[in-house]
Design a binder for these strands. Structure first.
Lengths: 204, 204
DNA sequence: CGAAGTTTATAGGGATTGCTACAAAGTGCC
DNA sequence: GGCACTTTGTAGCAATCCCTATAAACTTCG
């Protein structure tokens, strides 16, 4: 009798829950399906924890999404500044940026497109807000770079073009188009930039 | 007493419900917010009918969305075939198509972007299916046109490029960028096509 | 062994989702 | 007038949404 009670009572102690690992798993889920399509039940199931644990650890679904987005930006996203170094032909650097984006967006079949870019289109206004704020840093890097290499009258137009292309690549990647297709798109889109900035130093 | 009962009983007969008008209103709602973010309650409120009436008239939310999409395609969407007439310089025709898309996508502030394109990213799989099927007709028109004017080895790449640009324009329009910005993007994107197809007859 | 503190699990709240059963109210035909 | 038919409104279904109150189980310290 005593034994049976003990057997039933004694539950195997679960290993301590790793919050960072949880953010990583949540990031993958949010990236794959988007903020709206991922429920708290999906998250708790993926993290193998119960609902109260999730709220104790992260506060809310939105807060966890925020942490997932920040993790994405700092670890998996495109580093624009790394490509837009000074002293390079601007058209070349920007094209390389686009090609790199094309590769990253098609790299993992379950995480297509740019997580931040797509999150800017979420239904939830707060999720959109978070994503837009995070995206601003990246767009500013591009805008400043273009401003340094193009006449002031053209910077807005060229910046818009590059940002529009990035969104196009992300969206096209989400439709499961191949890396080869995406890279070709990026190269083709980049070719226009040579005419915009004039021949680079490699041609001079 | 009799009078009062009559007064309470007699409800003002509502005018007959116009189903086509209902589809029009639903189309605007779905276009503005997307399939997932529009609830049946939103629809019944906008159509000023009760829930059972909506189901009697259209069958389901998805069926109503289907009708709204078809209405959009036949009335408000871009007519690719109208721009891709034979005998024109291909780069010119395709650029004009992109510019027209840019204008349409920014025309109505409450209905930004392409309804079909954005619906292809919906969370609901059935809604995506419907949108994708509808989009296929349009992409085929573009693909066939490119195939007629470009070498077979390049048609896939150029078609991908155009379709990617269209998605980029739609997405960029959804962020409330102005018509001027969008049109500039479309023109810049179209400029590459001249190099792809070679100089058109206007240059010959 | 026993109290304090942390982590877990059960259960459920309040709101909203898409959808439907059912009866009252109105219209047209005989 | 009275019956058949269509349309409308009330109410509520089961499911899911995000979130939380509460208590049981475990670890740690005295």
């Amino acid at each position: 009798m005593e034994d049976q009670v003990l057997t039933i009572t004694r539950r195997p102690r679960r290993p301590a829950f790793d919050r960072e690992k949880g953010v990583e798993i949540a990031q993958a889920l949010f990236h794959a399906r988007g903020y709206d399509a991922v429920s708290v039940a999906d998250l708790t199931q993926a993290l193998d924890i119960n609902t109260p644990s999730l709220y104790a650890a992260y506060g809310s679904k939105l807060a966890l999404f925020d942490r997932a987005l920040q993790r994405y930006k700092s670890m998996d996203s495109l580093k624009a500044a790394a490509y837009l170094r000074p002293g390079r032909a601007p058209a070349e650097a920007l094209t390389e940026l686009l090609v790199a984006a094309a590769r990253i967006y098609t790299n993992e079949p379950n995480r297509l497109g740019c997580m931040v870019t797509e999150a800017m289109q979420a239904d939830d206004p707060q999720a959109r807000e978070i994503a837009s704020a995070l995206a601003k840093g990246c767009t500013d890097v591009i805008r400043d770079y273009v401003a340094e290499h193009a006449p002031p009258t053209e910077t807005q137009r060229i910046t818009d073009y590059v940002l529009m292309i990035v969104r196009g690549l992300s969206s096209y990647a989400c439709l499961k188009n191949s890396e080869e297709q995406l890279v070709n798109c990026a190269r083709t889109a980049g070719r226009t930039l040579e005419a915009e900035f004039g021949p680079g130093p490699s041609a001079a």
